[in-house]
Amino acid sequence: MQRVNMIMAESPGLITICLLGYLLSAECTVFLDHENANKILNRPKRYNSGKLEEFVQGNLERECMEEKCSFEEAREVFENTERTTEFWKQYVDGDQCESNPCLNGGSCKDDINSYECWCPFGFEGKNCELDVTCNIKNGRCEQFCKNSADNKVVCSCTEGYRLAENQKSCEPAVPFPCGRVSVSQTSKLTRAETVFPDVDYVNSTEAETILDNITQSTQSFNDFTRVVGGEDAKPGQFPWQVVLNGKVDAFCGGSIVNEKWIVTAAHCVETGVKITVVAGEHNIEETEHTEQKRNVIRIIPHHNYNAAINKYNHDIALLELDEPLVLNSYVTPICIADKEYTNIFLKFGSGYVSGWGRVFHKGRSALVLQYLRVPLVDRATCLRSTKFTIYNNMFCAGFHEGGRDSCQGDSGGPHVTEVEGTSFLTGIISWGEECAMKGKYGIYTKVSRYVNWIKEKTKLT
Rank of each mutant, 00 (worst) to 15 (best):
E259K: 11
Y91F: 09
F251T: 07
K146N: 08
K109L: 04
E433C: 12
N452S: 10
N343E: 15
G351W: 01
V273M: 12
R140M: 05
H400T: 14
S350N: 14
E418Y: 13
H267W: 02
G363R: 04
L372T: 14
E73S: 12
H415I: 06
V447R: 01
D410N: 03
N203A: 08
E116T: 10
F121S: 11
V416G: 05
C335I: 01
N48D: 15
F345H: 02
L189I: 12
W88D: 15
I214E: 12
F221T: 08
Q370A: 07
V56P: 14
I344D: 12
T381N: 15
C155S: 00
N59C: 08
D322P: 00
K457W: 05
T158I: 07
N36H: 11
V277K: 00
K51E: 10
P375W: 11
A317W: 00
T276K: 08
C335K: 00
T84G: 14
C178F: 00
C28I: 00
N313T: 09
T84H: 14
G349D: 13
Y91K: 15
Q96E: 13
R404C: 14
K339V: 05
K188R: 09
T342S: 13
C102K: 01
L383K: 05
C170R: 00
G160M: 02
H303S: 08
P324T: 04
Y305R: 10
K455V: 08
C128A: 03
K168E: 09
G403N: 08
G412Y: 14
F388A: 06
K274S: 05
T422H: 03
N328H: 02
L19R: 02
E320H: 02
I297Y: 04
L20K: 01
C145T: 03
W356L: 13
S184L: 09
G50M: 09
V416L: 11
F224Y: 11
F87N: 15
S156L: 07
F31M: 14
N313G: 05
C170E: 01
V30L: 12
M65I: 14
E72Q: 13
K137C: 13
L369M: 13
V174N: 04
G427E: 01
N166R: 02
E320L: 03
P333G: 03
G421N: 14
Y450N: 02
L327D: 00
N147V: 07
E67V: 03
E142Y: 03
T81H: 15
E288R: 09
T426S: 02
G355S: 06
N343R: 08
A173I: 12
F31R: 15
L376R: 10
A308M: 09
N258F: 01
G253V: 13
I17C: 04
R373E: 04
E320Y: 02
F395L: 02
K459S: 12
Q167S: 10
K362T: 09
S217R: 07
L23V: 07
Q2H: 03
N59W: 06
Q216G: 04
K457L: 14
T342D: 04
P101A: 12
Q167W: 06
E340F: 08
T458L: 02
T186L: 06
K446M: 14
F251V: 04
V242P: 00
L244G: 01
I390R: 10
E418D: 12
F238M: 11
D315C: 01
F87Q: 15
V368A: 13
E456K: 10
G105D: 07
G412R: 03
S169M: 11
Y161V: 01
E286I: 07
I112Y: 08
C102Y: 01
M6G: 11
C119D: 02
E323K: 14
K146P: 01
F121E: 11
S184A: 09
G106L: 02
C108H: 02
E35Q: 09
E456I: 08
V377E: 02
K45C: 08
E420P: 01
Q167E: 05
F196W: 11
C102M: 01
V353H: 09
T81Q: 10
H267F: 02
V4Y: 03
D110R: 15
Q219A: 13
S114I: 06
V419Y: 15
E193Q: 03
K311H: 05
E420S: 15
T386C: 14
N80L: 03
C141D: 00
F196E: 10
Q216H: 10
N343M: 05
Y47R: 11
Y371V: 14
P175T: 04
K459Q: 14
C335F: 00
R449T: 13
K247N: 10
V183W: 10
G13P: 05
H400Q: 07
V353P: 02
G122E: 11
D150Y: 08
T84K: 15
C141I: 00
C28P: 03
R180C: 03
I316A: 01
R364K: 05
S148I: 05
